[in-house]
């Protein structure tokens, strides 16, 4: 589903991604962990081209792109990649002037230009799926953080992306609201959605991930199944990170 080779990204003089090779299978959930500043967000943002990588190649679905920092990417090509991906943001980034339902309908009706009635039905069924059917007509500021994030997930799903990307979807939430969002994500994972999740929720990684990726200083320091990474890693940096997380 996703194939990344030698992906590199620099911000001015700061090398943030130093040659990432990674593949993620269709229907699997990959969880990216790692210390702050290791490049997790940047990697995720490269997958839907919110950041344009300097070098390397990216294959998402049927589509392969070769990056070349000397050439400007065409916006039509960027949009083609974006149609394959959905993104859930740490700070939800819902559209505050639209209701929950309208937030979900916005993509399919404005971008895909599907008929209103079909879009509406689809959006209502997504609302039901994230357990917020009764909040359809509320505005984001009338919803709790957990509810907003579930709308964020539904909004991303509405475009029927091949891959869903999550950047620390629960880290802006009060602890008691984390569970409801993780539950929705777990359901999606079990239904066979392909997902890439950056998170500090280690329990979620253990339970749901098919593949755990540990990033450190712009490289993938280790990857494997949750058992391999959490159970008996030999990697000193992974161990150090896991101990630090555990002692918090």
């Amino acid at each position: 589903m996703i194939n990344i080779t030698n992906l590199q990204k620099r911000f001015n003089d700061l090398e943030v991604l130093k040659g990432i090779d990674l593949s993620i299978q269709k229907g699997k959930t990959a969880v990216i962990i790692g210390p702050s500043g290791s490049g997790k967000t940047t990697l995720l943002r490269c997958l839907n081209l919110l950041e344009i990588p300097d070098q390397g190649s990216l294959k998402i679905g049927e589509h392969t792109i070769q990056f070349d920092e000397t050439k400007k990417m065409k916006s039509s090509e960027i949009e083609r990649v974006r149609k394959q991906t959905g993104m859930v943001f740490q700070s939800y980034n819902l559209f505050p002037h639209l209701t929950a339902l309208q937030n979900i309908m916005e993509g399919p009706s404005v971008v895909l230009k599907l008929p209103k009635e079909i879009v509406r039905k689809k959006a209502l069924s997504l609302l039901e799926k994230v357990g917020l059917l009764d909040r359809a007509d509320m505005y984001p500021h009338q919803l709790s953080g957990g509810q907003q994030q579930r709308i964020g997930i539904a909004r991303a799903m509405a475009m029927e992306p091949a891959v869903l990307l999550f950047d620390e979807p629960t880290s802006a939430l009060d602890p008691e609201l984390v569970g409801e969002v993780l539950k929705v994500m777990k359901d999606l994972s079990e239904e066979g959605m392909t997902m890439v999740v950056v998170t500090h929720e280690m329990q979620f990684a253990r339970d749901v991930a098919d593949q755990v990726i540990f990033m450190d200083k712009g490289v993938i320091a280790e990857q494997g199944t949750p058992e391999e990474v959490f159970g008996n890693t030999k990697n000193a940096r992974t161990l150090q990170f896991l101990n630090k997380i555990a002692s918090r």
Binding site: L50, R82, G86, M87, F89, N93, E106, V111, A156
Partner: peptide, 15 residues
């Protein structure tokens, strides 16, 4: 974040 959310559902700049 609002521009990015719009981009993430494949909106063009104009949209």
């Amino acid at each position: 974040g609002q521009w990015e959310a719009a981009a993430s559902i494949s909106m063009t700049k104009a949209q």
